[in-house]
Design a protein around this nucleic acid. Structure first.
Lengths: 154, 154
DNA sequence: CTTGATCCCGTAGTAGCTACCGGAGGCAGA
DNA sequence: TCTGCCTCCGGTAGCTACTACGGGATCAAG
């Protein structure tokens, strides 16, 4: 379990950062996490630098930044060379996207809520939910996927 | 161009329903759209039933129902056998998910907005955006993907 | 030395399409 | 009827960000 050298095994890092073990290896293959040193037997050994980096990544992901955005933010974070403006750009762009999604979801919510609410009253000839999808219904601006694992993670 | 028999070619159906041609073929392979009759040369020929079905599907997708949910709703829609309750269940479940996403996105929005806003003031020693991802920051409940094509479609 | 937990790597699968390909069908003008 | 051009065909690969699986190796403890 690598108790001696202050190093963490992959599973320990995973637990510490609240990330799946396989996700760490995935991050390594895509170059988001650096390849750590290994034991003679081939097991990865991580240290505090890795822990902090993975935590940074996880927080970035939780805030909805894409892998590539997190990658860019990591570079900006490393030498802290007055790149705050670039970091702000990334965050501002992301914020705009989030606000778009919010607007879309809000529209969605009201449409769905209205249909479902109409169902609760006395038995009707037509089903309000199915009518919502029927031929005469006009549509909201766009659509989004429900079974969107990204939001399940929120 | 199939002008005679009131049939639509695949591309015409696509345009009529505002759906990509390839998407229609995709829906056919997954069994969401029925396989239409063909011309002797193998081109698909669609009619009004297909148009309505595809419109139903598109509306369902735009309202964020998953493919499988749309599939279920299509079945419920077909014979209209008092299955309004089932349709309502699907919509209500979906509505709950949408509300969860809304809550998560709202939290996200305020965090991002706060960080970005802090950047706008006079030059700071630390970058607020990068600090947001730094080691001492506590995290929101969860995360979501920005480059989430599902919401680009909204 | 054995046991049981952990970790290894590679591959495939998830949702919901989109993109690309060479080749064939279809139709309108000359 | 020929020609040119658009559309459509099927199949495969790619996209995001992982997750799951499987069979074997390694680790730490008893």
């Amino acid at each position: 379990m690598l108790t001696k050298a202050r190093g963490l095994a992959a599973g320990q890092l995973a637990k510490a950062a609240g990330v799946n073990l396989e996700t760490i290896r995935y991050y390594e293959t895509i170059g988001l996490m650096p390849a750590p040193p290994r034991t003679p037997g081939g097991h990865r050994v991580y240290d505090d630098v890795h822990v902090r980096r993975l935590a940074f990544i996880r927080r970035g992901r939780e805030l909805g930044f894409s892998i590539e955005e997190v990658r860019a933010l990591l570079i900006l974070d490393d030498p802290r060379q007055g790149s705050c403006a670039e970091a702000k750009d990334i965050a501002a762009t992301h914020l705009t996207e989030v606000r778009h999604k919010l607007a879309d979801l809000t529209r969605l919510e009201s449409i769905l809520a209205a249909s479902v609410a109409r169902c609760t009253s006395e038995p009707l000839a037509q089903c309000p939910v199915l009518d919502m999808l029927g031929p005469e219904t006009s549509l909201p601006r766009a659509g989004m996927t429900t079974h969107d694992s990204s939001l399940d993670r929120l």
